[in-house]
Write a protein that binds this DNA or RNA. Structure first.
Lengths: 164, 164
DNA sequence: CATTTTTATATGAAAATGAATACAACTACT
DNA sequence: AGTAGTTGTATTCATTTTCATATAAAAATG
């Protein structure tokens, strides 16, 4: 029996059975494309939602990263938001001018700029975080808890693997 | 016993056991971030590699998409490359001027522009595809065939799920 | 230490991007 | 057919991004 589709079955325990097929086109079998595409699709709606409220997705990324770990250096923050350094530099200055962030000189290293969230930024990010969680819930509505954890665990593993 | 890491074990048959932990920071438990981050990490090196050869990553994306299915409409191509329409319009004109592509009027729909790869484009994409495959092989070197298929199958499933 | 190298951030000019819009061609409806 | 709405692409212009580089501080080196 020849399969020309891939079946992926996840049971309650996270066990997975796949029926493989060799008949994918290049991009549908190319990891980088699958990641780019799924990343795009997952974020698309939520980004529009943010923009409809007058915020840029860059602001969201920056604030979300800081919400986990406030007081990061520009470089540290940049490792999380995945921008180019000049891009982040300018964004952070702009966000400071809008009272969402504060930039402080780092005492330990006078070159470094430490970035903290302001009260206004905190209010905003609390709101956006709640929206993000709600959106993710919708995106993963058809996935069982185990399937969600499996997907995330595989991605985390990939990230760790690629970062070393 | 309290776990503060997630263990993901994939056996030869693609069976997966995960030990879950509740102690992730927001972004490390946020699907959109995990996808964006892994996407970025997977493509990073390869994109530099392309740029070092004097090509833009946009050219790579466009040609790779056309390599699967030549003669796409601008809109169809855009669904694959995930750009904004004006961005792709301009890129395609530029690439035509560099003799990598050809733009034809679609007979069935005179508004539409069909885009095909030129011989020069074919030579280039053949080279880049080989490099891309080699790069992916390196990226996934530590993954068994089954693990690779599992990862890709899950992403394909997510893509299909989000596209409906 | 003085010197070289590396690291952290900023900046300016140039390029890329995208929102808004225009326009032409197609579709659906009456 | 005629009209209204939709779709496919191009273009404009304001904004954003980035390359290249500058600068200052740290680290490494001899």
């Amino acid at each position: 029996m020849k399969m020309n589709t891939t079946t992926l079955i996840c049971n309650k325990k996270g066990t997975v059975i796949i029926n493989m097929s060799k008949s994918f086109s290049f991009i549908d079998d190319y990891l980088a494309y699958l990641l780019a595409r799924s990343s795009h699709l997952v974020s698309e709606q939520f980004h529009r939602q943010i923009q409809d409220q007058g915020w840029s997705t860059n602001y969201w990324r920056i604030l979300a990263s800081l919400s986990d770990e406030d007081g990061l250096t520009l470089t540290q923050l940049n490792q999380r938001v995945l921008f180019k350094q000049p891009t982040l530099s300018k964004l952070v200055v702009k966000m400071e001018s809008e009272k969402l962030l504060k930039r402080h000189q780092d005492d330990a290293d006078k070159r470094a700029v430490k970035i903290t969230i302001s009260p206004k930024g905190r209010t905003l990010i609390a709101d956006l975080l709640a929206q993000a969680k709600a959106h993710e819930k919708k995106v993963l509505a058809d996935y069982s808890e185990e399937q969600q954890q499996l997907l995330k665990a595989m991605l985390r593993r990939l990230v760790v693997h690629l970062q070393d």
